[in-house]
Structures are given as C-alpha cells and as structure tokens.
Design a protein around this nucleic acid. Sequence first.
DNA 1: AACCTGACTCGCC
DNA 2: AGGCGAGCCAGGT
Length: 106
Amino acid sequence: MTTFDKVYEAVKQIPEGSVATYGQIAEAIGNKRLSRVVGYALHVNPQPGVIPCHRVVKRDGEVSAAFAFGGANRQAELLKAEGVSFVDELHVDMAAHRVRALPMVL
DNA sequence: AACCTGACTCGCC
DNA sequence: AGGCGAGCCAGGT
C-alpha cells in the first residue's frame, strides 16, 4: 500500500454531493502535511472515472486551476451536476457540502 | 542516485 | 493582512 493508493482510497470515500479538501484527504491517510502529495496523486490519476477527483477542492473551497479534465470550470460543472452549490463560479459552498469527517484509510 | 518540481497547507514575519 | 519558507511523496531528467 503506497501513499498514492491511500489517497485514492480516501478520495473514493467522499459521498456524492459532497466535497473534501486536500488537507482532509491527507489527514485521512495519516499525515495532513501530505496535502501536496494528494494533489500530485490526483494529477497522475491512474483511474479517471473511478476516482472522483472533482470532489476534492482547496481548503477555502476553490476548485483547482489545473484540473485535468478540462479546467476548473469543468470541475465546477461536474459538482453542480451532483447537487453541490457554489458561492461563485469557482468556490464550492463549503459550509453546506464539505464532509464533516473523512474515514481513516488503512 | 541526486535534484527539481508539482491539483497544498500552515506558521512566522 | 499579505508574503515567504518549510514539510511531505513520487516520478522524470
């Protein structure tokens, strides 16, 4: 089990209609300083379509500018399609959709 | 094998 | 309050 695998497992735990921050993912795999690695793990996303990387946003709810599927705007649309509300085009309504506690990945 | 970089976050100035 | 440096992991050069 590599660190990347843990990241993927954690991301897959995010329920539909909710979002998690890179920090939460990092925390779920045992080290909140891995937030940077989390981003890189999704960057090399080995299984697009399986890993809901669009449900991962920055700590302030802003979507990633370098989103691999076509840009931040594309990510925002995917989320809206799941029922996630936005405070503006690039910021998710964290107060309403951020996961309270992400299950720890073994 | 070492060094640099990258979808981040937090603490100190 | 805004800017800068540090910490973490993996892959390419």
